[in-house]
Amino acid sequence: MGILSSPWPWWVAGPLIGLTVPALLLLGNKAFGVSSSLRHVCAMLPTRLDYFRYDWRRVGGWNLAFSAGIVLGGVVAGVLLANPEPLQVAASTRLALAELGVSVDGGFAPDAWFSLAALASPRTWLLLIVGGFLIGFGARYAGGCTSGHAITGLANLQLPSLLAVLGFFAGGLLATHLLLPWFLGGGGA
C-alpha cells in the first residue's frame, strides 16, 4: 500500500507533530494543546463554577475547530485510508499482555474493552469512564496534557512541563504495572 495508508516511522511522524507548535503560533498565536478543548466544552454547560465562566466561543473557538479537525483526521486516516495490515506489537509486550489474558487482535486497542460488543459489560464502562476521568481531571489539574506539556512546554523549556511529564510517566508506569494487572485479576469487580 502507499505511504498514505501504511504506518509511519517515528522519524517522520515526530518531526511533523513538532511542527504543529510553530504552525499554530504562526497561524494565529495559538499554543498547541488539545485538553483545553474539554474545558471549553464544559464552559458551554450552564454551570455556576467560576472556572467555566468565560466566553468559550471567543477563547476556545479555535481549539474546538482544531479538535473537530482531529476527529476528521481520524476519519480520513482510520476509515477512508485505513491500514489493511494488522497492528504489529513488540514480542515482549505481546508476551507480557498474554500473561495478563490480553490478546493482540490486530486493531489499535484490545477488542475485549474497546469494541462495540465490549460496551455490554459494566466492567468495560468502569475502565473507560475511570480512565477518561483521570485524563480529564489530571490534564486540567496539571494545566495541560501530552501536547501542551510534553511537546509545547518542553520545547519552550518550561520547568512545570518537565514536572508534569514526570507525573505523566509515573502515572503511566503505575497504571501499566499495578492498576491494570489488578483490574484484570478481578479488582474493582
Binding site: 481531571f137 489530571g138 506539556h149 512541563s161 503511566g172 497504571a175
Partner: peptide, 14 residues
C-alpha cells in the same frame, strides 16, 4: 504538576 500529571498518567496508561 506532579499530582495532576500523575492522575493524567494513570488514565493514559489505562
Amino acid at each position: 504538576y506532579l499530582l495532576g500529571g500523575t492522575a493524567f498518567g494513570l488514565g493514559w496508561g489505562l
